[in-house]
Write a protein that binds this DNA or RNA. Structure first.
Length: 402
DNA sequence: TCTGGGGTCCTAGGACCC
DNA sequence: TCTGGGGTCCTAGGACCC
């Protein structure tokens, strides 16, 4: 089964508000959860059914959404409460199986292979849908099928608060009739190409020549042809996995064309990224910085580190070097990103790094800073060189001890 | 006019090796 | 003047997901 929370951020915000004594249920009016327009991140993150009816779409600018829907109300998101509701859903699902893949904050796959009868599965899905609504206060769509792809497609059919099945024999009537753009993993670049080839529905793709599609689209072609035919042998991945990379990025309040100022932002990002890296007990082997210009052109530059590290200073120094190499004087930068890749666990690391007294000192410093951040909040402590950028990178301004 | 931020996976081309 | 055929590793950029 695939379980998908309906308008997750908006529904959860609605619940939080009601809990605090507000009387207006924002699920029942044209409303959205949006980013911060002043920080130039004003996009739609989630929408109510009434906002959707006006034509508001996720990802578009709040400005556009308001034009489509003049009495639209905009609310801020609160990631902390979202995590809480996500956990409530997870705990409810645990009563059915521990084979749960948390696909995102508002989506889970669960593996119920032990139940072979379609009717049994369907009844379980009905029960989950009802229990979530009654016990947790929000609604979910549940898709029931014999693999993940079909379950995911099913949960997307009609919303909200519905259970849909997509068994083998239902593929032609329920899935093949849909426009090809509805197929999972077909995005804005591939769909027009298929259209030009005369492939308009998922059925058209399913019944096209597999070899031809592979020749045109390579590996991705094989995947989409199989998906169109309902083929997917992937497992429900219920074991927690460590991340393959960790990154943070910020859209700046104003475009910067001053390398020193960009460096300050990179230092704040390095603090953020390495803080998370250390929480996972991982070390990074490569550093990558990303710049977005005022014309929305993205550039990235990466490089390997001499030894794997999670030190703020090491990562920052490398990032600074990369910036030096790539930044063209006079370019106006809108967004700065820093990410680290090729991660290894700290235990795998040879001990060589600990022979270096300087590294040892840095490790101790980072550890101390981390525990202060854990205890008193991320904004508690910051580097003196970082006071300007800190306010750009972090929304919450805690106390600052220098 | 306005266009986020967090990820994963894939590809093409270049450097380098034998 | 004519210059292979393997392979690996690295980087930049792009497609897709939520």
């Amino acid at each position: 089964m695939h379980i998908d929370v309906n308008n997750a951020f908006l529904s959860w915000t609605a619940l939080e508000r009601l809990k605090k004594g507000e009387t207006l249920d924002i699920r029942k009016i044209p409303a959205i959860i949006g980013g911060d327009e002043e920080r130039r991140s004003g996009i739609v993150l989630a929408k109510s059914m009434k906002a959707k009816a006006c034509g508001v779409t996720t990802g578009e600018s709040i400005y556009m959404a308001r034009r489509k829907c003049p009495d639209l109300q905009v609310f801020k998101g609160d990631y902390k409460s979202y995590k809480k509701y996500s956990n409530e859903l997870y705990n409810l699902l645990l009563e059915y199986t521990d084979k749960i893949e948390r696909y995102s904050i508002d989506e889970c796959f669960i593996d119920l292979t032990e139940y072979l009868m379609n009717d049994t599965l369907y009844n379980k899905a009905i029960e989950i849908n009802k229990r979530v609504r009654e016990e947790l206060g929000f609604t979910v769509n549940v898709g029931v099928a014999h693999n993940k792809l079909l379950a995911k497609m099913a949960s997307d059919f009609t919303k909200p608060d519905r259970v849909h099945t997509l068994f083998e024999e239902e593929i032609p009537t329920k899935m093949w009739i849909l426009p090809v753009s509805e197929l999972f993993m077909l995005g804005r670049k591939t769909v027009p190409k298929l259209y030009n080839m005369g492939i308009k529905t998922i059925g058209d793709l399913a019944n096209s020549d597999e070899k031809y599609i592979i020749k045109k689209f390579g590996k991705h072609g094989k995947l989409m042809w199989e998906y169109a035919n309902g083929i997917d042998n992937s497992e429900v991945n219920y074991k927690e996995e460590l991340p393959k990379g960790v990154g943070n990025s910020v859209t700046l309040p104003i475009d910067l064309c001053d390398k020193e100022k960009i460096q300050e932002v990179i230092l704040a990002l390095a603090e953020q990224v390495t803080f998370r890296l250390r929480k996972y007990n991982l070390l990074a082997n490569t550093v990558c910085i990303q710049l977005r210009t005022r014309d929305f052109e993205d550039y990235s530059h990466q490089g390997k580190l001499d030894t794997a590290t999670a030190n703020t200073k090491d990562i920052y120094n490398k990032a600074k070097k990369l910036l030096e190499e790539m930044y063209k004087k006079g370019t106006f930068v809108r967004l700065v990103g820093l990410r680290v890749d090729n991660l290894i666990s700290r235990d795998e690391m040879q001990l060589s790094i600990f022979n270096n007294t300087n590294s040892e000192k840095q490790e101790k410093l980072d550890k101390t800073i981390d525990s202060l951040k854990e205890k008193f909040g991320y904004g508690t402590i910051t580097r003196a060189g970082n006071l300007n950028a800190e306010n750009i990178v972090n929304t919450k301004n805690g106390k600052t001890i220098v």
